[in-house]
Design a protein around this nucleic acid. Structure first.
Lengths: 210, 210, 210, 210
DNA sequence: GACTAAGCGAGACGGTACGTCGCGTCTTAAA
DNA sequence: TTTAAGACGCGACGTACCGTCTCGCTTAGTC
């Protein structure tokens, strides 16, 4: 009987890995945006340009692909329930700040962001692969925070998500201030202040009772 | 009496204007990042490529220059004191949202952000010419807000600035959500909640008295 | 049986020919030196500039290459032994005069000569590909001339070569006199006078006996 | 009474000299043709580009002008009558060989020859200023040679001129052989052989009688 | 001895071509 | 069939000089 799921050509997997590794190396070394070129990736990886173009439309898709692999561990496991909303929010936002402070992820995102903003296809991939998983994780944290009475019942995930991540990216891209833990703390505290239940509401009473 | 300010070569001013106009036109038309080329600017403006390179190091400096002119009116006049902190914050953030929703400013910023993030020189210019003026305007609004008792006395300009602008840029660049007035309102309300004086403090009492 | 000489990419040969043809056309049309530009060759030939630069270091190598092809038939076949030294010398020098009177060869040589004189690499190629073959042909003619007793036994090829070609190039380049058959005849007659055996020598006696 | 020949502005003479000197310096230094640029001449001489263009149509006119000054002493004084035709011819041709072996004259001529050959205007100047004076000098030598019986009465100046100078330029430009005194000697001896009166003619008898 | 206009330096301008880089496509030969 | 190797057409890059132009300043030579 024939193999129903035919073994894929092992060369495919091998060249794939070579290309992504070379890409990450070049991104980590590269002083700026343009230092990542398909030609350089081909030379570094020993994979023919043709083969690379067969699998990625352009250098930006490739870069996004290569770089998202680095991100995976950062949101693959949901932040665990530690019984403390502040801590969980910190864990969440720290993982983002940490990733963006790391080479090659940080510099690569700086270089990629214009492409993502500009090209719908890249934008779609980024949202599906990066934004959505993060939102889902944050949603879980928020749900627990509401249950604990640390957050108002009507707290909106989308809003919180933007309040938390927006400033991080703004710093990384434009404002020039450093990305650090103090930022995370300030963000979380700001958020908790803003979205804490008002005194006198059911939620706040529930909270005080503890 | 002698001419104290010697007439500069009028061609300088003329070519300058032509180049910046052509740049803005191309940015407004351009489907994506790369559609702005020095060659195209030269062709469109009737100014020689060499002349362009004489004044701008590369296309990004040129684009930033061209585009900042569009921005000027948006922060040239400080938001007036209308006696209502919420309204003033809305005015402030709406001017940013408005600018970023406009062609060529919005698309141009999408294209420029990677370059700004990557090149220290561009970054410096952007901070000095755009970030700082905005911060100064916001500082004035905040000062009045504190005086009115709408904001806590220890409200930090930098923090508020990042809370307000971060989400706006995050949307424009990555999250894919639309830039609109609802966003402005949500941001301002979130901020006011988070930074309103706590009940029972001096500031809150002062506020209630009114 | 397998193809022992692997098929080269046919585009190579095709683009090569296109470029050389375009070069010759432009040289033939060109009013002056500078009218041959790589850009024009690229445009005319439909071959990309990069491809041209891949194969020729600069326009002068290209021009020399293109132009030497025209020259080949002029010295490819040795002047035949017709039993008459004067006629053979005339045939020899006429082929040179003829080539230099022809477009694009003549104008091209006028334009090239400074480059050849200046760049060792071009100079080497010119000597190997043009000067040497001609000298070899002249050597054969001279050998026969000596055998016939028309030229002194110690007649030096190098000297004769310079006496014959020098004035031709001098006219073409500097003196402004026309290149024509009268020149050829005068050169050959001068040479024969100068290099004929002196009366009373063995050679002259041999000559008279016939 | 009015000054009929008004004193010319002395600045004209001064800038003229500066430009020509700078040109000669650059020609002497320059590795190749293109290293002489009007911009470099302007920079070196401290004279404005405008002023240079006011006086010379292009760099080749300038170069020819600059370089011909070096040549002047070489043909300013006619070769004196020393009573020996061979010596006088040697003196004549040595002065040419000497000039062409000298920087900047030699390299400059190598670079200029294509321009002279190509541009009628330059050609005219070269012929009038260089070729003609030399021909006149040679004519005097030849006349004395004929009078002495060393040359046939029908010796043609033009022919001799080309026989003598052609090989010199051919070497300098194309054949790659060195320019030296041996060449001069060989040329003169070849010429004297070729143009000596035939035995038995009136001229030869006159010659023998001495 | 002041005045005017010619000649000048400085340097920006529009332009042509340069020679290079990287793109994304295409062709061949080997695995 | 898929790959590595690498040539190709292409578009833009950023540079070098070209030859032209505008602009005050300097400096003669004239009134």
């Amino acid at each position: 009987m024939k193999n129903t799921t035919p073994t894929p050509d092992p060369r495919i997997e091998r060249s794939n890995r070579s290309v992504l590794n070379a890409t990450r190396e070049l991104l980590a070394e590269g002083r700026d945006v343009g230092s990542l070129t398909i030609e350089a990736v081909a030379a570094r990886s020993g994979v023919a340009k043709t083969t690379i173009y067969r699998r990625w439309r352009d250098k930006w898709e490739l870069a996004l692909d290569a770089v998202m692999i680095d991100m995976l561990p950062h949101y693959y496991a949901d932040p665990p329930d530690v019984g403390d909303t502040r801590k969980e929010l910190l864990t969440f936002i720290d993982s983002v700040v940490g990733a963006l402070s790391m080479a090659p992820y940080g510099p690569a995102m700086q270089a990629l962001v214009s492409e993502i903003a500009t090209h719908p296809e890249l934008s779609r991939v980024y949202r599906e692969q990066v934004v959505e998983p993060r939102r889902a994780q944050l949603a879980a944290v928020i749900a627990r925070g509401i249950a604990r009475g640390d957050l108002r019942a009507d707290t909106d995930v989308q809003t919180l998500h933007e309040f938390l991540l927006g400033p991080v990216f703004y710093r990384m891209l434009l404002s020039g201030s450093p990305l650090d833990r103090k930022l995370s703390a300030r963000l979380v505290d700001g958020i908790l202040q803003g979205f804490a239940p008002r005194p006198g509401t059911a939620a706040s009473r529930r909270r005080l009772r503890r």
